[in-house]
Design a protein around this nucleic acid. Structure first.
Lengths: 325, 325
DNA sequence: TTGTAGGCGTTATCAA
DNA sequence: TTGATAACGCCTACAA
């Protein structure tokens, strides 16, 4: 394995010159350049990024901490990150929390050991729990981005979709389609988040009454536990705040011989392939997950380069019309 | 940022001793150990893996080269890899070829620059094209695993599902369900692979006649171009060799007022969430993608550790019964 | 425009 | 059981 020194010797210059040439900030003589080029080819030289990282005290590695990678919701975000990072020649580490069995402290220690250039957290730690490690991250001065959760903390850049707007758009859309009585269905959504949706509903409906809110609990049978409740409450449309649940609920509705959307409209939150392959195809509120990832990566890069960046990025959702509303 | 030396000074030992203690191959005196431990705590020492890598000339980073991460087929494999790697404290780099705009040579150069401990290719390069770089990989002596494509090359470990068996199982299953005339539907499947399926069919049907094989081409409308062909050929069951296509074809069949499975059974290849949320839920041949990933990771680790490993791993598929057959 | 020398943080070799 | 010393491959003052 040839090193810089070998190239230098072969080209009859000093290692320093080769290094300068490769990092091409300062110009070298044309003839020198040619000799170096030839030596590199002849010896099949490949620079050693690890040595470079050690010397420069920085790597080109960005870590993404994600709950689960085989989930279209997260993998869409991740793919956006990957795309932007790749364009800028940064490498992408993936850490699936589900598989890792590490607590936050340990994850952060791992980041530090590996001289990670920046960390992108994709919404996963319960907000308060992460609060504990914030101090470490700040002390250590590692660029961090927190994507996909709206938490009130402003110590590092946040990116998330405008959930109030998502709710408002969705609610307006259902009303515009002639629906009178809507319900929200969600799965383990913390109160803070649910609150955004109720606020959006309030803005759109201009009514003081709160709509029915149904939580899907673990092991619940939608056909038995959920559909009857909706019917009893004379609900004619549901806004399901979890895409997969929207798909399953739609299945349950169809099975109960309800027509979607005539008897019951279903609006799903999130626009992955799942909504598209559901039957009927789900109309949904697109949260722009890929864009979220891409922007997260850009902000991490800005931080790494000590450039300016937006402390908060709120993405605007939009409706994608299909056949379930 | 405290270093080994700082710890050594604080604990009144040499850096060497601290290093030995941390890598705990050789024992140190109990009293020394305590002093070192205390120093580490007091100074908040975190080892520097980059320096370690440089010195030891090896990293703990494994790269996965994957066509597309936001695709359940690949992300299931990737997640299996991630899980196994995580258990052994290896880090996972992800390179999405679709985003990378790099040719093989460049990818391999990247791997080398970063001193990657091993590379897992997930079926993506057209076989012959990858053939060109094989020599580099072998020369460079980087552990490599090639997952999810059955190619005849045996220079490095291969893992793939038994496609002949998948086809045989599927065919037998369709016949067992009383179907008389089946067709294969695929999308851009190269002839070598298609061949496996025809072989499996032959073994299961014991007939010399070849079944109808229908290729879905780019921009094809399934309802218009595919369903009529199936009907004209009096086909009563299809084995779709691509999960997403199976979902869409099922949609088209239902739209054409065919009953699935009574008029036309659909068997899908691959068992991700997609088959499960399709309507009707798709019976499928599970290719064990997560297991494939997990095994790939294990083989990479064996190679890295210079242990023995299976040069070829063939995973046995199995039927998952749902409602489309 | 180019070269010299020292060090990034760790581990390996050898000696004590 | 421990320590001194020299690398690993690269970058960067500083000097020429």
């Amino acid at each position: 394995m040839a090193t810089l020194k070998d190239i230098a010797k072969q080209a009859n210059v000093s290692a320093c010159t080769v290094s300068r040439y490769l990092n091409s900030d300062i110009v070298v003589k044309k003839e020198t350049e040619e000799r170096i080029q030839r030596a590199i080819k002849e010896l099949g030289y490949v620079p050693n990024v690890v040595a470079k990282s050690l010397k420069r005290r920085e790597t080109f590695n960005v870590a993404v901490i994600v709950p689960k990678i085989n989930n279209l919701y997260y993998s869409e975000i991740t793919s956006g990150i990957s795309q932007t990072l790749g364009k800028h020649h940064y490498n992408l580490y993936i850490y699936e929390v589900e598989n890792l069995n590490l607590n936050e402290e340990e994850i952060l220690q791992l980041m530090r050991e590996n001289m990670i250039a920046g960390i992108i957290f994709i919404g996963l730690f319960s907000d308060m729990s992460f609060q504990n490690s914030i101090q470490s991250v700040i002390d250590w001065n590692i660029p961090v981005v927190y994507a996909n959760r709206c938490i009130p903390y402003t110590g590092f850049p946040l990116l998330y979709p405008d959930l109030v707007q998502a709710s408002k758009l969705g609610t307006e859309y259902l009303f515009a389609k002639g629906k009178k009585e809507m319900a929200f269905v969600h799965k383990h959504l913390p109160d803070e988040l649910l609150h955004h949706f109720l606020e959006g509903y309030r803005q759109a409906s201009k009514s003081k009454e709160t709509p029915l809110v149904l939580e899907i609990e673990e092991g619940m049978d939608l056909s038995r536990d959920c559909v009857p409740t909706l019917i009893q409450n004379k609900v004619d449309s549901v806004f399901v705040l979890n895409e997969l649940s929207a798909v399953y609920l739609t299945k349950a509705l169809v099975q109960a011989d309800l027509r979607v959307p005539e008897d019951m409209a279903v609006l799903s939150l999130g626009n992955s392939l799942m909504s598209e392959i559901s039957t009927p195809e789900l109309t949904c509120v697109d949260l722009q997950n890929r864009e979220l990832g891409s922007r997260s990566a850009k902000i991490i890069l800005s931080q790494i380069r000590k450039e300016e960046y937006e402390p908060t990025t709120v993405l605007q959702p939009f409706i994608v019309e299909r056949k379930s509303v």
